Amino acid sequence: MPDKIALVTGAGGFIGHHLVSYLVEQGRQVRGVDIKAPEYAPSRAQEFALLDLRIAGNCEKAVAGVDEVYHLAADMGGIGYITSSHAAITLHNTLINVNMVKSAREAGVGRFLFSSSACIYPQYLQHKPDVTPLREDDAFPADPEEGYGLEKLYMEKMCQYFTEDWGFPTRTVRFHNVYGPLGTYEGGREKAPAAICRKIAGAEDGATIEIWGDGQQTRSFMHVDDCVEGIVRIMQSDYDRPLNLGTDELVSIDELVDMVAEIAGKRIVKRHDRSRPQGVRGRNSDNSRLREVLGWEPRIALREGLQPTYRWIAQMLAEKADAPQVQAAE
């Protein structure tokens, strides 16, 4: 009997790339699919297909012969991108998500996991830096992040309806700010930990770096190793409603900057730009239900996870600086 195949969509992206490696290390046969190949290291998937999942026929190709789907593909990025691209994000992700869950059900896939986001949570609960950790039941009455958060919440309900009405097994995971090596660290789609690591790695000792907002906005951050383990645990569980996946270690952005500067061994001066997007004032994960369902929660402390993340980004910048510059022909 042939090995059962796990499909990872978004396998060319940050979390998807790490998830492929985790599944392969567990002895799984993996098919990776994305519109692009991984940027920083080759995929370990036994199969990898470049497919635009906004096209229904490509979703049908992607799910053919697979036993379970880890659906991570999405048009997304950091706060700068998701606050300036509502139309594109909503259109692209709606097409990707609807086509994928429909194709998976029609192909008889055994189980389908959807990667949602803490951006689905109501903005009216996130006005203060000392935010109360968000529980899964807090999603309604709804007031999600415009665009990205709204389409994620809609897809969560789509998964619920597919399960309730048609018996199609789905799982939904709400990510809270994932970081780690091999993630986007420049170009406008990077998240706060990667952006801060990049700025500090590129700065001289005693230099000034720009911080978006006033630095008092708070977040919790989860290392990608904890993230991929949690994804697989949730897929294997019997729980079919949304689950938070994050840490409850709340820090301000200024505290995050100080932590990275200490890891780098540099003195850094902060210059706050309050005109730049900063998102909600505070967001933290309540992991009570995650612990109840899985008997597990993310374990990697922020300082511990930032060390290899910073080293990798600093290495990437150093290699780029040392690379020979190609002169354009006159």
Results as ranks from 00 to 15, higher is better:
K4N: 14
A6K: 14
A6Y: 15
A6T: 03
V8K: 06
T9A: 02
F14R: 10
F14P: 12
H17V: 07
V20D: 07
Y22R: 14
V30D: 09
I35W: 09
I35P: 05
K36G: 04
P38Q: 10
A41S: 12
A45C: 04
A56I: 04
C59N: 10
V63W: 08
V66T: 03
E68W: 08
Y70D: 13
A74K: 01
D75Y: 00
D75P: 00
M76F: 05
G78A: 01
G80T: 08
G80I: 04
T83L: 07
T90N: 08
L91G: 05
N93Y: 02
N93D: 12
L95R: 13
M100T: 06
A104P: 09
V109P: 01
V109S: 01
R111H: 00
F112A: 03
L113T: 14
S115D: 03
S117F: 09
A118E: 04
I120H: 09
I120D: 10
Y124A: 06
P129L: 07
P129K: 13
P129E: 13
E136L: 05
F140D: 01
P144R: 12
G147C: 14
L153A: 08
T163W: 11
P169M: 11
T172I: 15
T184Y: 09
Y185L: 10
Y185C: 15
E186Q: 12
G187Q: 08
G188Q: 11
R189S: 03
K191L: 08
K191N: 14
A195H: 04
A195I: 06
I200K: 02
I200M: 04
A203W: 09
G206T: 00
G206Y: 06
A207V: 05
Q217M: 08
T218G: 06
V224A: 04
D225E: 11
D226F: 05
D226I: 08
G230V: 11
R233P: 06
Q236R: 14
N244L: 06
T247V: 10
V251N: 09
E255C: 04
E255M: 14
V257Y: 07
D258Y: 05
A261I: 00
E262F: 01
I263L: 01
G265V: 07
G265M: 00
K270E: 12
D273F: 03
G282R: 04
S285E: 05
S285G: 03
N287L: 15
W296N: 01
W296E: 00
E297V: 02
R299T: 01
A301C: 02
L302R: 10
E304W: 12
G305A: 02
Y310N: 13
A314M: 13
Q315S: 15
M316R: 05
L317F: 10
A321W: 00
D322G: 10
A328C: 03
E330A: 15
